[in-house]
Design a binder for these strands. Structure first.
Lengths: 109, 109
DNA sequence: CATATTTATCGCAATATTACGATAAATAAA
DNA sequence: TTTATTTATCGTAATATTGCGATAAATATG
């Protein structure tokens, strides 16, 4: 127990859930917003901006990288993070499809 | 430790994350899809459809109710679940805004 | 080379999540 | 009233997540 029973769900359902889960933490939302706001890559600022320890932020970045929504490029001693346009668009499309699949109640109790 | 540091994030960030987290499980995606597919309220079918124990499904339904995206109406011995149109639309709008806040890279490393 | 700077990883503690059996609570049906 | 049916809740076990200090790894700078 304690583990999600992925086997009983479709690949699509698992993927959608995984993606939503990755975004389902305020620190990760804040990180993405920060990158977006900067209109460029972010190299190191994050630790000063958010009120979390460096190790914690590194961990959140790792999770965002795992689902592919951000990308890191080594730039000297630091690493620059950008949003992966392709993955971002893909996530957007998936969510649009999901939310578009329901357009209001028809017959109901 | 082990607890998310909600205090250091904005209400908006926390809300968005909470909503995404609630949707970030394949069972909850499956439940929502099932309700949508039925084009009506779902009363009891869920336990037979998904391969999870009744207690587990009840727990997932509770989490979806907690964020308001579904609504339960007692109908005799069973409970009918529907999507809350208003909350669904709100979530959709929030996500559209979030994903719309980034439209591709400009200057980057 | 020695020292600083930056990020990743390890190890740990606290808490949360997932899943399930057992049981309770509420209503329908016999 | 007794018995089924359906859902919620409790308790518990297994695992995951969150957060952080310490430390490693890599590159820059003096």
């Amino acid at each position: 127990m304690g583990t999600t029973k992925s086997e009983i769900f479709s690949i699509r359902q698992n993927k959608l859930a995984k993606m939503l889960k990755a975004l389902g933490h305020p620190a990760r939302i804040a990180i993405l917003q920060h990158i977006i706001k900067a209109e460029a890559c972010i190299c190191g600022d994050l630790v000063n901006e958010l009120g979390l320890a460096q190790a914690t932020i590194s961990q959140h970045l790792k999770e965002l990288k795992n689902v592919g929504i951000i990308q890191g490029t080594i730039e000297g001693t630091s690493v620059c993070y950008c949003i992966d346009d392709k993955v971002w668009a893909q996530f957007n499309a998936e969510l649009t499809a999901f939310f578009g699949s329901y357009a209001g109640r028809k017959t109901c109790c």
